[in-house]
Design a binder for these strands. Structure first.
Lengths: 118, 118
DNA sequence: AGGATATATTAGATTTTACGAATATACGAA
DNA sequence: TTCGTATATTCGTAAAATCTAATATATCCT
């Protein structure tokens, strides 16, 4: 049954369905990084970052290697970067609607963030 | 800021983070289909299917066209199929671990489903 | 052993998501 | 206009995700 395949896909997507986790994966594009660096660059609570790393680990999107008291993370398969690249193209291909969508989704929030292009 | 880009990506992934919605998108690979057919093939509650369609609509993954009393759905950009194709390759590339992962995630459920390959 | 550093895990509150049941809307037919 | 079909929306509830604060674990250094 290809039900398993769909479940698998949705699981991976679920793992990628948070901006912080996208940021982590993108951060690892050029190779492994210790958790400390990741956390520092994210600029969020240590515990929170660690939880996001745990999600990526659970879905096997990243793996880690312990060296001394540091833990180095790396993306398991660069195939995922291809997915992110396609998404970037997708975003640009529909730029105006994409931005409108982001604003719509934010609507109701107290602070309205500016949407700039990369 | 490419913060917007990351937010956009995670939004799309969020929309794809459910097996039913993956099924819908895949179902539309060869072109548009009326909601009725989609619902019938999914074999789930009409309301539930309609809700999933609403999610895909909100994220602009699909668009719809009304004809008479039917509503035809289509995927906005075939780029998404490329993403799904990559995920299939990803799945196969790590077949054994993928299946173990699916089982692990199911662990604790009352009924244990068999994991078959597509 | 004891303290400092790096990272992970747990707990609890809040928000978001998913689902079924019921209801609403839009349209075509009689 | 009333009826039936196709689809969407709302409501209530259960489950899952997210965040902060607190605590735990492992490793190195002295």
């Amino acid at each position: 049954m290809q039900d398993a395949l769909r479940k698998f896909k949705s699981n991976i997507f679920q793992a990628l369905s948070h901006p912080t986790r996208i940021a982590i994966v993108e951060m690892l594009r050029d190779g492994e990084l210790p958790a400390g660096v990741i956390i520092e660059r994210l600029g969020i609570e240590q515990a929170n970052a660690s939880q996001h790393l745990a999600v990526l680990r659970a879905k096997q999107i990243v793996f880690n290697r312990k060296e001394g008291q540091q833990v180095f993370y790396a993306v398991r398969d660069p195939l995922l970067f291809d997915v992110l690249d396609i998404m970037r193209r997708y975003f640009h291909a529909h730029l105006s609607e994409s931005m409108r969508m982001l604003n719509d989704l934010d609507a109701g929030d107290s602070k309205k963030e500016e949407v700039d292009v990369e």
